[in-house]
């Protein structure tokens, strides 16, 4: 069982796949660019729909990989294609010869400052979904003024379903994240008006619809169907949001103390870079191209290269974990079948 398995990315997909491979008797190697494991989930406060603390998820996954070789703060310098294996050169000077590479490179949160009209980085009271999660965790963010928080807005689809932003895809998890964060804001500030500006609400997952109804019925979150067109700042430093209330067929505007942009999910540029070393094909949606989008989402077009998680498109946490287990099983089958 001394088969080398290189897992690129120490987010939840990489951790779960490594945990499963260890259980199957392998010793996988995790290469993580950042200084910590858990990826985006490690930066989140809690997860829908049961408000599970994100740190619990990450620590459980991390416990399962205590036997794995883990390199943090490490990048892939290059990958050479050998006869029937790959030589992976790491930035820490170590090189690994392996037949098997699992891409768990995840996603990059869309850079909200690219939507210039929303004023992220220009107006003081404009933050992103990630900023808000960090504020939930730490309580530190000068942009969030807890003493005067009477009106909060959420803008759905920032950098999603937006050809001009270079991402035509739905990022899948932002609708439910906005509902979750809107409820959390209402819990902290019951008197505040909380608005969600949406184009469509896509409540596809387990108990999402219940969560949405609860936001409406129990918390009085006000959902306005219309994409925000422009954000500005008034003389008091509050943000003014313009949209169309498409259900009323009229323009609408509102003054807010905080505006949260639901930044979408785009392919991680580091993933694209590493994929080009092999090279691997990208799909038309900008993510890695699976061998088959229905029957073999974790397989690539190249022997020994596997995918799991958001490197092939936006996914929820449970979907990512399920894919990671599936990829671990695929790798196990690949090794055992080639041994025969």
């Amino acid at each position: 069982m001394k088969e080398n398995i290189v897992i690129i990315g120490g987010g939840i997909a990489g951790l779960e796949a490594a945990g499963q491979l260890i259980r199957l008797g392998y010793s996988p190697i995790i290469v993580e660019k950042q200084d910590h494991l858990g990826g985006h989930v490690a930066e989140w406060h809690c997860l829908f729909p049961d408000m599970t603390p994100a740190s619990d998820v990450v620590s459980r996954l991390t416990e399962n990989v205590s036997e794995a070789n883990i390199f943090v703060n490490t990048e892939i310098l290059f990958i050479n294609h050998l006869k029937d294996s790959y030589n992976v050169m790491l930035s820490n000077g170590i090189s690994i010869v392996t037949r098997i590479i699992l891409f768990t490179t995840g996603f990059r949160l869309f850079d909200a400052s690219k939507k210039e009209e929303y004023g992220y980085g220009v107006y003081d009271q404009v933050i992103t979904n990630r900023d808000l999660e960090q504020w939930f965790s730490t309580g530190n963010d000068d942009r969030v003024n807890s003493r005067e928080l009477n009106a909060v807005g959420f803008v759905h689809c920032v950098g999603s379903r937006d050809e001009k932003a270079g991402n035509g895809q739905c990022s899948k998890v932002c609708c439910i994240t906005a509902v979750k964060q809107a409820i959390e804001m209402k819990q902290r500030f019951p008197e505040a008006q909380v608005y969600c500006f949406y184009m469509d609400l896509r409540m596809f997952g387990k108990k999402y619809e219940d969560f949405y109804i609860s936001a409406q019925r129990d918390y009085g979150v006000r959902f306005i169907r219309g994409r925000v067109s422009e954000v500005s700042e008034n003389i008091e430093g509050k943000v003014i949001v313009k949209a169309e209330d498409t259900l009323a067929g009229k323009p609408v505007k509102v003054t807010l103390d905080l505006l949260v942009l639901m930044a979408g999910i785009v392919c991680n540029p580091d993933c694209t870079k590493v994929a080009s070393m092999i090279p691997l094909q990208m799909d038309s949606d900008g993510f890695l191209k699976s061998r088959d989008n229905i029957m073999d989402i974790t397989g690539s077009s190249r022997s020994g290269i596997f995918y799991a998680g958001a490197c092939t498109g936006a996914k929820t946490v449970p979907e990512t974990l399920a894919e990671a287990r599936s990829a671990a099983l695929d790798i196990h089958n690949y090794i055992t079948s080639s041994r025969i």
Partner: peptide
């Protein structure tokens, strides 16, 4: 208003 934010766009 964050002036540096505008400078970045400029």
């Amino acid at each position: 208003m964050i002036y540096q934010g505008k400078q970045k766009i400029w």
